[in-house]
Simulated scan of single mutants.
Amino acid sequence: MAHVATPVSVVTSINGGLPVGTTVSAFLSLSMNPPMVVVSLDRGSETLELVTESRKFGLNILSSDQHSAAMKFATKDGVGKFHGVRWEIDHDLPRIIGTAGWVACTVDRILEGGDHMIVLGNVVAADQQHGSPLTYHRRAFGTHSALETV
């Protein structure tokens, strides 16, 4: 699967006023009517536990200059992930500042998927910024470049 380019996002939730989050590369748009997305979270993820309890999550679509945030949120250290990261509350969820996009969701359902759980989210708010999204391909971060059309 390393040969498949994927978007890099951070799924966020909140626990007693403290933000939690984890990097995901398994995210996609599921439906336009109603607007829905899919994210895949590791079964042992603290973020999954909070998303399951709260029934909502934020999806921070990282910009091409946020690869260090992607690495930080990919660690198992739940406490220090937001240290040094600018964020705010949006729709009662942690929103990372400077992302290429933001989606606030309520959980529609959670399905089993091997060692991960598949979370189907109903989009309640979305915002995009101008800038290139961060992608992951062949174990390296990059971004999308449009092909020249003839």
Rank of each mutant, 00 (worst) to 15 (best):
L48M: 04
E88H: 12
H116C: 01
E88Y: 12
Q129N: 07
L93Q: 10
G142R: 07
V20Q: 02
A126K: 01
F73L: 12
L18I: 02
M32A: 08
N60E: 09
T106W: 11
S54P: 00
T75C: 10
R43P: 03
G121D: 07
L18F: 02
D108P: 00
L30K: 05
A5W: 06
Q128N: 05
A125R: 06
R109N: 14
W102H: 06
T75I: 08
N33D: 10
F73K: 09
K76R: 15
L50M: 13
C105N: 08
V123Q: 03
R109I: 09
A100I: 02
P19H: 07
D108K: 13
V51P: 11
G113K: 10
F82I: 01
L28C: 15
V8A: 06
R55D: 10
S13L: 04
E46I: 08
I110P: 10
T99S: 14
T23Q: 05
I61A: 09
R86S: 13
G114H: 14
G114V: 08
T106L: 14
K56M: 15
S45P: 04
S54H: 12
C105H: 05
G142I: 12
V150H: 12
F82N: 01
V20P: 02
A2P: 03
R55Q: 15
G142E: 06
A104F: 04
T47W: 05
H130W: 01
R86I: 00
G114N: 09
N15E: 14
L62D: 04
S45F: 02
S145Q: 13
A70G: 11
S9P: 04
V20N: 09
A146S: 12
A126Y: 01
D92Q: 14
I61M: 14
I110M: 07
P7A: 13
G113N: 13
S31L: 13
R109C: 12
A26S: 15
L50W: 10
V37N: 11
E53D: 12
S64G: 00
P94H: 06
C105W: 08
T23R: 06
T135W: 04
S64N: 00
S68I: 12
S31Q: 07
H67Q: 12
V24T: 11
S25K: 05
I61S: 06
G98A: 04
T75A: 13
D42C: 06
R109L: 13
K56S: 14
Y136P: 00
E88V: 15
G101D: 05
S29Y: 02
S13D: 08
E88T: 15
N122Q: 14
D108M: 07
Y136F: 15
I14C: 03
T6V: 13
V51R: 07
H137W: 11
D92M: 10
V51D: 12
Q128D: 01
R86W: 00
D42M: 11
G114K: 11
T6I: 07
S132A: 13
F141W: 03
